[in-house]
Amino acid sequence: MASPAVDDYLKTIYHHTEWQSERITPSQLATELGLAPSSVTEMVQKLAAQGLVSHRPYGPVSLTYAGDVRAAAIIRRHRLIETWLVREFGYAWDEVHDEAEVLEHAISDRLLEGIDERLGRPRFDPHGDAIPDAAGTVHREPFVLLAAAPAGHEGRVLRVSDRDPELLRAVEIAGVEVGADVTVKDAATLRVGDLEVALPAGAAQAIWLTA
């Protein structure tokens, strides 16, 4: 079942538990993919028959070992391409997602390896998401969502979600970037260096810090 559609399901399931532990439900999967619940149920059954996901009726969906390996390979392609576009072609971090969605299905393994080597084997993409290595292994520090971080928490910005390009642009304009050392004043305000930065609406649910 090698197809972009299958890859999109596996990526979405993988993404869901990267930064939190709750498994994805079929209804959440349908919402994320913009598909009818009946279509998702049918595909999940096919993926389960292929040994790529584990699922029981009305329960959440999780990747099997085989599904996780395949999802990590897809994620690796996507995030290496995003990094390549930013570093080599001057794309902004809010512009790369859709380009990578197209290119991840088009480039060869040989080209992907060349990109990885040229970039110096990066471990993280421009948004701070971990890039799985060729074996599917990821390295991620302990983290906390900004919305859950207490006032006075000091940490480094690990990740800014790429789900909303407009929010990415607003976060960048505010002066917050991946790798910045910050102190939490509240969920809407960070201290970056000597500056107090007011965050755009929704940022507290889209920024992760070192725990």
Rank of each mutant, 00 (worst) to 15 (best):
L168S: 10
A187G: 12
A187Q: 14
R169S: 05
L168K: 13
E154K: 10
P150W: 03
V176E: 09
I173R: 15
L168E: 07
V160G: 02
R169A: 06
A174D: 07
P150T: 02
D181F: 10
V184W: 11
V171D: 03
V178P: 06
K185Q: 15
V184Q: 13
V157S: 08
A151D: 12
K185P: 08
A170R: 15
G179F: 00
V157W: 09
L168F: 08
D164H: 13
H153R: 07
D181T: 10
I173K: 15
G179E: 09
I173W: 14
A180E: 15
A147Y: 03
A148K: 13
V171P: 03
P165V: 00
L168P: 08
R156L: 00
P165T: 01
E177W: 08
G179P: 01
K185M: 10
T183W: 10
S161N: 07
G175K: 09
G152C: 04
L158D: 02
L168I: 05
S161H: 04
G152E: 05
D181Q: 11
S161V: 00
T189D: 05
R163C: 00
I173F: 15
V184Y: 12
R163M: 01
A180S: 14
D164I: 04
V182F: 11
A170D: 11
V178K: 13
S161T: 02
V182N: 10
G152R: 13
P165R: 09
G179I: 00
G175C: 03
P150E: 05
V182W: 06
E154C: 06
